[in-house]
Every structure is written in structure tokens, then in C-alpha cells.
Design a protein around this nucleic acid. Structure first.
Lengths: 352, 352
DNA sequence: CTACCTTGTGGAAGCCCTTCCAATAATAAA
DNA sequence: TTTATTATTGGAAGGGCTTCCACAAGGTAG
């Protein structure tokens, strides 16, 4: 049996007699033979592996996207190398590691601003990259219409008759946060309502760019200082923040949606549990699509960058007050204020 | 410049003159040269890569462990190949893929029972494997004292004076669930209390082995049928279940901890938010240790299997009633019953 | 029975490193 | 200055595949 023949058998090439094929397979089984992955990779000049660079997924949004990615990647028989980013410095490092010649066949880059230095020198590199939940004109990207989404969310509150509407947004340095804020403003303007700057609380929390429960809690604390002028409805830039914000409201004895109506963004799994009205992002789907796009890009490396944008969908639950619900039930416990025991890791991370 | 010299420079071998080193480096930079990862792997016969096989991390427990793993792996300059398992069938497939010759240098296997077929043929394979949150005598493992932990949790409730104590447990097919149940029983016996079988609700949910909010919700619904004999205190086998269970209680107008005291298990991030008294597992740390153990195992492949067991720690918050809290506040919303909109993925998965 | 296609098979070359050994250069000792 | 050491350097061999080319074998048509 020639060495080439064996290769042909294992790779399902057509020109092999059934007899030889079986003979090869038999011997292979007896010897417990398996092709050496790296040797194949070296010879074929590809790895069948993608890297995913993700700001660490303590944030539920990423978990769901990552799940989509991972399932899709497995289904096509590829492997996924995971780079969790906890600190902005790690971005460069991860990109560099992933770009090492022969390491992976492509990179999925999530939710973080692609460093300009990389954006430039990337075009030389033949390595495809797909951006998810972030944008760069030079590369394929899959994003959500944050502007439109925020507008829709806000308009929902307007349509419920609210006149005094506020917003709590995550750290403005993050694209999604700032764009959602713009959408909020646009909605009010569109309906000839004045934008009261005091009604806008911008989180200055740096951890997770303010997309966290703690940040939401603190922001609402801040907003509560408005006292009687407290908005009757608030758009909050993410579900996790909304959960924190609700805790702050509870502490003051304020009820959602009766005293304050809330619409948030993301529709993470918990949103359902908390009865949050929110803008649903097809997270799982976005993960899958990212992989699909990666494959397409590999087939046609020179095509123009593709930009997919999803329209988030309004999911009406209870927190906005549109759906009336059964009698209120007493809550059982206070939210213990942030940092009570878990050590607050103050790494800043520019992310979603 | 000889080819060997270049290699020496890139690998930091000592015997290279400063002059040559710099010359090589200069040329390398000019040519934008990088060693080819797979070629290195082939020549060195190692990949600097570990695989992690994890039941999919919609479950917060895994996220936290995975984070520990990922950080540690990056810190030693290795790569992590992630295999998320959604269906039991995928376990074999993942193990097989990871075991392919030259694919990875080691496998971290999480929370699932290692298939016997693999356990056997593994010893031939030179590939190290470390088990986390699961056990097999033949391999290194890092687990938590589920028995002791459950016992401690139960004793805490006993010490608070409860006489009628119940337990809600996840699917008994899962090791942690069944062991925690045993610990519960042992605690009662130790204190000469009778074990009332009606007070034990065993979840028959298969998805995530019943370690889910829905399962907890349903189990509590079931338990509520006890009516006036409802236990005054309940030990629940995980935090997520406890959260679901609390929702069910709320629906009935019952308050935690006043009407029912609760202690659960895991101490996921959300536990704090919900004020759950729970048994803390050092999840992040377990992830790191798994990697450490992997490295040790590689240094000394023939050492006897190491079994590390952590003692979970009781974290007292509000749900057990030991800490009295400020006046109750009305809750704002019902828990919308399971499966209201998210399509219930009914894959069964034998996991934690 | 030839001449000409197919189809299948063996193996060299190439993928890109690391590692080892031999050769050379530099240095120290005599 | 010569010899014995030691520090560098070059490059062949080897790691395990894929791919391509040449050749053999089997078929078909003339």
C-alpha cells in the first residue's frame, strides 16, 4: 500500500478501489492509526480552526453569541480556539497570537473596537476576520441596529403615554452605548418631545464598559436624586443594567412598572425571568452567521466587505406596563449593594 | 545564516551571539517572518494547546469555571480549544476529536460522567486528561465535597431551628445531585430527625439534568402541593433552581425567608443578587487548578492519579433567614412560567 | 492483436520547523 | 605560537502528511 493511497482513502478521494480502501481501513484499525492533525495542517496549509476573540463572557450576551458560534463551528467539523479578553491590553496579544502563521484559518472578533494598528496591517495578511457586534468598514461585520432599536424602545414608552422619559446608558466610550443614546434622543425629537439632559444618566463605570448590574444599580441611584421629577419611564441600555436599576428602585420602595416603566436592550435569558420588556438581539443566530460569513469569505477572499445588520425586535413583557399583570407580591429581599463581597475587579475593558 | 541558527534565535536558545541574534531578528522583521505554528508543532511533537470539553455553559457554573481555565491557559501561552456539549452524543465525538493524534496536549473534561468506553482505552493513549467536577478513579480530578457541602447546608437550616426541612434536587442521574441528596439525608439523620420522603422533590427534568431555573420552578410547584405541610426550610441543589423555586413561591404569595427559608448550592454570581444563602464552590479557582494539574501531569505522566476535593463554604445571605433584613418591598412582576416563549430545547444532557 | 484511454497505485517532493551532529571560530591555557 | 577547550554555526535528518507526476493495469475500439 503506497503512502499516497492511504492518504486518498482517508480523505475520501474518488480514485480508490473498494477493495484497497477496505484493506487500508482494516490495517488502519488494527494499527489504531489516525492521521496527525498538525501534519495534515502543515501539508494542506490550513488548520480547520477559527479563533474567537471575545470580551470575557461574564456578560450573558456573549455566552449566547458564543454558543451560536461554537455550535456552528463544530457542525462543520472545525475547532474553535477561544480567547477571552479581560483587559484591553490582551486584545493586541490575542490578535497577534491568532495571526501567527498557520495558527487558525480565520478570526471572529467580538464587540470590541478593532485596534487601528491592526486594521491597517490586516489587509496584507491573507487571514480573514469577521466582526460581530462591532464595526469596521474594511471588514465583514454582523451588527445590530442599535440606533433603530433604541428608537423603537423609546417610542414604545412614548406610545404608552409617558411624557417624562429618561435613559440610563452604559459607558459612552462603547459604541453600542453611545449609539443607543443617540437613538433615544432621536425618538424624543421625532415626537417633538424635549430631551431633558438631567434625565440621562451616563454610567462612568469602566468595568465591562458599564454593561453590568452594578453599573445599572449605581446609575439608578443617581437618577433617584431627581426626586419628584423622576421620569415615569426609563430606557436602559442593557438588560443587566436594568436588573441592577430595578434593585435600586425597589430599595426606594418604587415599583416597576407602576411607578417607573422600563424598557431595556438585549433580551438575555434572564430578561424573561425578570419580566423585562426589551429589544431582542438574535444573539445565537448572530454567532452562527458569523461563522457562515467566515466560510464565505474564505471562498471568496477578494469580495467586498459584507455588512449585515439585524433589526432588534421589541419583546413586550411586564416591565413597561403595557401588559397588566396579576397582583403584586412582596419581594423577599433587598439587593445587597455592589461590591459587598465579591472583590471588584477594576480592570477596564472597552467592550459592549 | 543557517536555518538552525534562526530556529535557535526564535526559541531563545543560549548559544547564539548577540550579533547574530540581532541580525536574524532584523531580517525576520524585514521579511515579516513568523514561525509556522503547525510546523513547530509537528517538529516538536506538541501543540501547546489544551481542549476543554464542557457541557454547554448556559449554566453559570461553567462560565465561571471556564473563565478560570481560560485565563490560566492564556497566561502560560497555551491555546484553548473549546468543545461545548449540548447533547450527550457529542461527548464521544468531542473526545474523539480531541484525542486525534497531535491535536492537543491534554484534555480538560467537565462535569460529565466520563464514558466507560473511553476510560478504558485511555490508559493506552499517552494523552493526559483532567476531570473537573466529576470523578473517575483512574484520572486526575478536581471536585467539590458535595456530600459534606449538602450536609453543612442542611445543618445550617437545622441550627436555625427548623423542624420540617425539605429538599429539591436536580435530576438524580447526575452525580452532584444524587450526592447532595445523600448529604441532606445524612444531616437529618445525624440530628435524629426523620427524613420525610414527601419533602424530597427529585426533578425529572432532563435538560441540563434539572440544574435549571425551570426545573426549580416546577419542583417547587410540586412541593407546594404539600399545602400546610410545606417545609419551613428547603435545601435546593443549585442556585439556579433556587431562583426558579422562589418564583414559584412568590406566585403563591409565600415569602422567603419568612415563610420558607432556603439554602442552595454553587454561589454563582447571581446568588448575591438574589440574596441566596448558598454553598460556595470556588469555581474560578477550580478552573485554574485544573490547568495546573494538567501541567503537572504532563511533567510526570506516570504519577498516581491526583484527586483534589474542595470543601464548599457556607455563604450566609438573606434567603435562609439568619440575617434579618429591612422591610419587605413589593415585588414588581410575576415570573412568567417556563417555556413561555423561548423554545424549549429538549435535548437531554447528562451533566451537572 | 494493436493502439489508445481510463482508472488506480506508488512514491518523490514539498509543507516548515526542531534537533542533533559535525565543522568552524573564538578563546584560554601552555 | 601551538594546542586544548569551549562557544557558535550550518545543515542533514526527521516529524507526518498532501499532492502531483509517472507508471502499471485493465478496457475499449479498430
Amino acid at each position: 500500500m503506497g503512502i499516497g493511497t492511504v492518504s486518498r482513502v482517508f480523505n475520501g478521494h474518488p480514485n480508490v478501489t473498494k477493495a484497497t480502501r477496505e484493506k487500508v481501513l482494516a490495517v488502519a484499525k488494527r494499527l489504531n492509526y489516525q492521521p496527525h492533525v498538525y501534519a495534515q495542517g502543515l501539508a494542506r496549509q490550513r488548520t480547520n480552526t477559527f479563533a474567537a476573540i471575545i470580551p470575557f463572557f461574564t456578560n450573558y450576551f456573549f455566552i449566547e453569541v458564543l454558543q451560536g458560534v461554537q455550535e456552528k463551528i463544530s457542525s462543520i467539523g472545525f475547532d474553535l480556539i477561544l480567547h477571552g479578553i479581560n483587559h484591553p491590553d490582551e486584545i493586541d496579544e490575542s490578535l497577534r497570537r491568532s495571526s501567527r502563521r498557520g495558527r487558525v484559518d480565520g478570526i471572529l472578533f467580538f464587540s470590541m473596537r478593532l485596534p487601528d494598528t491592526f486594521a491597517k496591517k490586516w489587509k496584507d495578511l491573507e487571514l480573514p476576520i469577521v466582526l460581530v457586534d462591532t464595526f469596521h468598514e474594511a471588514f465583514d461585520s454582523i451588527t445590530v441596529e442599535n440606533f433603530q432599536g433604541a428608537q423603537t424602545a423609546t417610542e414604545h414608552l412614548i406610545s404608552l403615554g409617558h411624557k417624562n422619559i429618561g435613559m440610563i446608558t452604559a459607558n459612552i466610550k462603547s459604541d453600542p452605548a453611545s449609539i443607543r443614546l443617540e437613538g433615544f434622543r432621536a425618538a424624543l425629537k421625532k415626537h417633538n418631545m424635549e430631551v431633558n439632559e438631567k434625565n440621562i444618566i451616563v454610567s462612568d463605570v469602566t468595568k465591562l464598559d458599564g454593561f453590568s448590574r452594578d453599573a445599572g444599580y449605581l446609575a439608578m441611584k443617581e437618577m433617584l436624586k431627581l426626586g419628584p421629577q423622576l421620569p415615569s419611564a426609563i430606557f436602559i441600555s442593557s438588560d443587566v443594567q436594568a436588573i441592577g436599576a430595578i434593585s435600586a428602585l425597589r430599595e426606594k420602595g418604587l415599583r416597576v412598572p407602576d411607578d417607573v416603566a422600563i424598557v431595556s436592550f438585549d433580551d438575555i435569558e434572564l430578561a424573561q425571568h425578570f419580566g423585562l420588556t426589551t429589544m431582542r438581539q438574535p444573539m445565537h443566530r448572530m454567532g452562527e452567521l458569523a461563522v457562515d460569513q467566515m466560510l464565505k469569505r474564505k471562498e471568496n477572499p477578494s469580495a467586498l466587505p459584507v455588512q449585515m445588520r439585524f433589526m432588534p425586535e421589541l419583546v413586550v413583557r411586564q416591565s413597561c406596563g403595557a401588559k397588566k399583570i396579576s397582583p403584586h407580591i412582596e419581594d423577599y429581599v433587598h439587593y445587597t449593594a455592589p461590591q459587598d463581597e465579591r472583590t471588584g475587579n477594576e480592570n477596564t475593558l472597552s467592550t459592549r
